[in-house]
Structures are given as structure tokens and as C-alpha cells.
Amino acid sequence: MSGRVGTRVAVAVAVALAVVSLPLVVDDRFILKVLTLVGINVIIVIGLSLLFGYAGQISLGHAAFVGIGAYTSAILTARFGWPWLAAVAVAILLAAASGLVLAIPSLRLRGHYLAMATLGFGQIMFVLFVEFREYTGGPDGLSGIPDPSVGGFAIASAGADYTLVWIVAIAVFVLAGNMVRLRPGRALKALHGSEIGAEASGVDTVRLKLKVFTLSTALAGLAGALYAHHLGFISPSAFSLEFSIVLVAMVVVGGMGSLWGAVVGAVLLTLLPFLDAIVPGMPREVSSALQDWQAGIYGMTLILMMIFAPGGLASVARKLTRRVRQRRGEGDTTEGDTT
């Protein structure tokens, strides 16, 4: 038993190392940049998965928290010359604080009110990103955001940036994975299963919802900060309602209540518009059509998933493995599985 766990940990560590050290093999700057974007979205979607996939609380304004993180870190470093680490820390805190401030009134409400409140908040933040020209650069965006640097060491190359983002993404994945398997994670799932049942089991549901919303917005802020320094340029359009909806789609496609699903959803939907870079020999027309129809494709994917696989890819995978196991069981005994 412990041997099996040991093997699993070894495999996980090997996969993580392989992901992080990819720039040793791949030196195409564009591909590395796209894959860095994937890592950033993985961080956001893990946070959104805890909130929406586990606890069942929807946010239609998560892009705004990514934006708060991105603008905070960008403005502090580019305009005020703050060190990168301090700026990122403040970006996380500010995103989390705005999350908390929004959550306190709206989480007391049930059902669709949280969706409405986050939707409204996202729109308000979008307007603020555009209108606070003096700091945000308005609709033209904010450029000249410095590379991440710690104590004089700049993380300047595409490869180094990729490695930084994926180390953070994997750390977030491992920490969130630990969390969901234990007491707090079970309480989150309980919220989703039956809020009344959770209260009757001794869970302070209001407090727990505040916590997970704040945690989720903190992760969005972290990802936003990484995004700003990764691209060196940000503009409001990156943090629009459309991105919020894409984030929700990533959770749904991957599967509610599965962190692996969240990762797969983030990877697939982030790569979709960049297929031509990943798949060699793909015609330009196909990839530009994909980009033009991006929102429509996400929408269709959401609808199809809801109809054919409401549990997301994670549940499809679970069903397949179960079926394979049952097949094997039938092969071994003549009677087959009785259940």
C-alpha cells in the first residue's frame, strides 16, 4: 500500500519536473508564451473550481479579480518602481480584499444573486480599468511592465517565465489538492450537496463561503499579477465578461468537483485559439476561423457538455475507467460483476 503511494508520488514528481523543465527541450518563444498563458489560466481555474466546482458558488466576474491583480502589480512596478515580489503580494491581497468586500453582502443571498453580483462587479471593474486612464492607461492599456525579478535576478527569457509560472501553478495544484481531500474540502463539497445538510452538520456555511470566495479571488489576483509581468502589457479587454465566461466554461468542461478536470479544461480551452502553433501543418484559415468564432465555440462546447456530459470530462474519465474495470472483472469470472 505505502509502496503504491510511493510510486504515485514518484510519478507525480517526475511529471511536475518534466512540465517545469520543458524549456530545456522547446525553445520556440511563441509556444513557450502560449504555454505560460496556459499555466496562468490553470491557476485561475483551480481557484474558480474550488468556488464553483466544489462549493457550487458561481462567479461571473472572475476576470475582474484577475484584472485587479494584473493592474495592481503592473502599476506598482511600472509607475512606482516597487520590487516585483512586493507588488505581487499586494496584488494578491487587493484582489482577495475586493473579493471579501463583494462576498460579504452577496453570499448572504442564495441562488442566482451571487451570479448577478459578480456579473455586475465585473462590469464595474471593466469600466474602472478603462476610465482610470491616469493609472491604467485607459483602453490603450498599460505597457512597460517590468519582468519579474527577485533581488536583482530578472526572469526575462520566455523559458524562465514559463518555468516560474508553472512552478507556481503546480504548487497551487498540490496545495489545493491537499486541501480538497481533507476537512475543508469536504465541507466545500457539502455546501454544494446540501447547504441545509452542511449547516446541520456543524458547518458555518456563511463563513466557509466567504473563505472560499476570498481564496478563489486571491488566486485570480496572483494569476493576474503573473500575467501582467509575463506579457509586459495589459489592457482592459483581457479582463472582460467574455473572459469570465470562458473561465466558467473551463471549470464545466473539465468537470465540477475535480481539480484534474479544472486543469484539463484550462489547458484545452486556452490552447484552442492557438491550435496552429501546437499542431504543425494546420492551415492558417482554420486557426483564424477558430479565433474569430472563439466565443461561439466556447458557448457551443458549454451547451454540448451540459447535454451529453454534465459531469465534465472528469466524470467521462471516471465512467470509462469504471467500465474498463468491469470488463476486466467479467473476463476473470464467468458470472461477471453482480453490481
Binding site: 486541501m179 476537512r183 469536504r186 463539497k189 445538510g197 473563505k211
Partner: peptide, 30 residues
């Protein structure tokens, strides 16, 4: 009012919530 998205054992474990302490940070960091 069971949690249909969880196993029977996990349902009972949620019942231990108020008698146990592990918070989000403690759980994440083991």
C-alpha cells in the same frame, strides 16, 4: 439532506466538522 455528491463515509466525515480543527492552510500544507 445528504450530500449526494459524496461517498457515505465522507458524508459522516462532514459531521465531524465541528469536532475537528484542520483549516484550509493546515490542510493545504499538511
Amino acid at each position: 439532506q445528504l450530500f449526494d455528491n459524496m461517498t457515505a463515509l465522507d458524508n459522516v466525515l462532514v459531521g465531524r466538522y465541528s469536532r475537528t480543527k484542520t483549516g484550509m492552510v493546515a490542510a493545504a500544507l499538511r
